[in-house]
């Protein structure tokens, strides 16, 4: 096991973490501001990926596809907010879970209806093809580095948006006291739609970026959604800082666990058993980490009091 290989896996973990952050930031924002648990967030991720793949195939340009994914996911988000989600804000979490579960069925089957059951493929744009050398002699895919870069930019952008702009001020006010901000004359319904569409656009961006690394298919959003849940539970629901920390933690722990656990076990037990046991344990690792964190900090690491 060389240093280059280890570094490569670490970067893979970081890239997964960044993707999870894009998902988790929207989820946690929507929960923090509107108090809504949105299972259909994974469907918005899928919408982004399909929009990017379809538009890129039609126009031949990944970049137009990427823009289309943002627009499509934000539009889909705004539409479901206005038609369905808006009615759920004062319902209990059970109703929210069920209604958004129903939305998943509608989105998944609807997408299968429009695009068929076969996966679509999305190529990495020519500008980002190729690899860059790593210290220690390895090579690393430029595209994955670019995803990490996008994550850093989005994290900075969100920070500036929330802490420095008027919209961000309203979002923070909505988090702490929604009656008061409505009384001050802010159109809270529009604010909610904007926040939901913003979260949706981030999910769509994540879907489009990942779409070039794996096939674009129905159901792709669900594993990402569940990992994003783990992320925001670890980080503390409602906290963007927690989402960033949790996402990187989950991404790195998951990737390194899959890489290292079989090797570590092979030192203790015969290699033929170490492989499957290590793989099985690695797939459970992040959930074990989550359980441990919640056992000591039941409302996550960066919990905002509510």
């Amino acid at each position: 096991m060389s240093i280059a290989l280890l570094l490569e896996q670490l970067l893979n973990g970081l890239q997964l973490g960044v993707m999870l952050f894009l998902m988790a930031a929207g989820l946690t924002l929507i929960f923090g501001v509107m108090g809504l648990i949105n299972l259909a967030h994974g469907s918005l991720y899928m919408v982004g990926a399909f929009a990017c793949a379809a538009v890129a195939a039609a126009t031949g340009s990944f970049w137009i596809g990427l823009a289309a994914s943002l627009v499509a996911a934000a539009a889909a988000g705004a539409i479901i907010e206005v038609t369905v989600i808006r009615r759920l804000y004062d319902r209990d979490h059970l109703d929210q879970v069920l209604a958004t579960f129903a939305l998943i069925l509608i989105f998944s089957e609807g997408t299968r209806w429009m695009f068929g059951s076969f996966p679509l493929y999305l190529d990495i744009p020519p500008l980002l093809q190729g690899a860059v050398p790593l210290p220690g002699g390895g090579q690393y895919q430029l595209y994955r580095l670019a995803i990490i870069g996008v994550g850093v930019v989005v994290a900075l952008g969100l920070y500036v948006l929330i802490s420095r702009t008027r919209l961000g001020m309203r979002i923070r006010a909505g988090e702490s006291d929604r009656e008061m901000i409505a009384a001050l004359g802010v159109d809270i319904r529009t604010l909610y739609t904007v926040v939901f569409a913003l979260g949706a656009a981030l999910a769509g961006l994540a879907g489009a970026l990942v779409g070039a690394l794996q096939s674009v298919q129905v159901g792709m959003g669900e594993p990402a959604l569940i990992l994003a849940f783990v992320v925001i539970v670890i980080g503390g629901i409602g906290s963007i800082k927690g989402a960033l920390f949790g996402a990187v933690l989950v991404g790195v722990v998951d990737t390194m666990g899959r890489f290292l656990l079989p090797k570590v076990l092979a030192l203790m037990i015969p290699a033929a058993q170490a492989g499957p046991i290590g793989a099985a344990l690695a797939s459970m690792l992040i959930y074990i980490v989550m359980a441990l964190i919640l056992a000591f900090r039941p409302s996550g690491l960066f919990a905002t009091q509510s």
Partner: peptide, 13 residues
Amino acid sequence: RTTGVYFIMITLA
């Protein structure tokens, strides 16, 4: 040990 949304998500996890 958790309630509300945390309970939903942790049982899912």
